[in-house]
């Protein structure tokens, strides 16, 4: 797939969506450039999953435009997936439901995300962390230009969460795919994302983790103590953004 570097893979312009008389998204603009990690954060009910569904084309906005680069392949990891209890399905078959992949290619991806030893295991017999990695594997075998991950660390224990975010960073580095993910654990995400989109039905603020974390609307939503509690965490990670100094693109909210 050939995609020029400056064309966004996906862009939303002025997306507004209401369901059942409630406005879920209001005039939202998002742009995802190739190879970038964009994290959507926001309180419960902020419309994060709705926004992702619009991006994926699962939901049609009432107003606004959704544009996708031509020939873009999307790998999607839904927030909650439960294989029917009475469907005997092992991990390899589950991954294959996503499309035709030859065995060696599937094995390579399974090794990359650390599920190669699980391929013959029934889907119902996976731990939370294993389950998420298997879903990631299914998304990756499509060789996507864009990975969309809705709360990828859900159901994963705390130690595993950091490891999963690191895995996502490594995948982006190795494959050069863009990543859009939804999260509400600010601590871990700040260290592994290029851009943050703070959503509360409308886009409160967007930019680099540094700039967003000092933005007044972000602080109003999450409180300054969140930012302070974040600082020691981000120091544990070997990331490219410093939390102090180097403040960029402070936007008007």
């Amino acid at each position: 797939m050939q995609l020029s570097a400056d064309e966004p893979l996906l862009s939303l312009n002025g997306v507004t969506l209401a369901r059942g008389g409630r406005t879920l998204l209001e005039n939202v603009d998002v742009s995802v450039a190739p190879g970038r990690i964009v994290t959507i954060i926001g309180p419960n009910g902020a419309g994060k999953t709705t926004l992702v569904r619009v991006m994926l084309g699962l939901e049609k906005p009432d107003r606004g435009r959704v544009e996708r680069a031509r020939g873009l392949t999307v790998g999607y990891m839904p927030q909650r997936l439960v294989v029917p209890m009475h469907m005997p399905l092992n991990v390899e078959r589950f991954i294959r439901l996503g499309g035709n992949v030859d065995r060696p290619a599937l094995r390579d991806v399974a090794v990359e995300v650390g599920v190669a030893h699980l391929l013959t295991r029934p889907m119902q017999a996976l731990s939370g962390g294993e389950h998420q990695r298997v879903m990631l594997c299914r998304a990756l075998v499509r060789d996507p230009g864009l990975l969309v991950l809705d709360e990828p660390v859900q159901g994963v224990d705390v130690g595993g969460q950091a490891a999963l975010y690191q895995l996502i960073s490594r995948i982006r580095q190795r494959r050069g795919c863009a990543v859009v993910m939804v999260s509400h654990d600010l601590h871990l995400v700040m260290a592994s994302t290029d851009e943050v989109l703070c959503l509360n039905r409308h886009v409160c603020c967007a930019g680099t983790p540094d700039s967003v974390s000092q933005h007044s609307e972000f602080l109003a939503l999450f409180g300054p103590e969140v930012y302070r509690s974040m600082a020691p965490y981000t120091h544990h990670h070997d990331h490219r953004h410093t939390m102090h100094g180097d403040v960029v693109e402070q936007q008007d909210g």
Binding site: R53, L81, V83, L97, G99, R138, V148
Partner: peptide, 18 residues
């Protein structure tokens, strides 16, 4: 067969996958 299995596991994931 495969699409039938795919929608029985997760309809929206199947939709995103074509």
């Amino acid at each position: 067969w495969r699409p039938l299995l795919a929608i029985s596991v997760h309809e929206e994931l199947a939709r995103v996958e074509g």
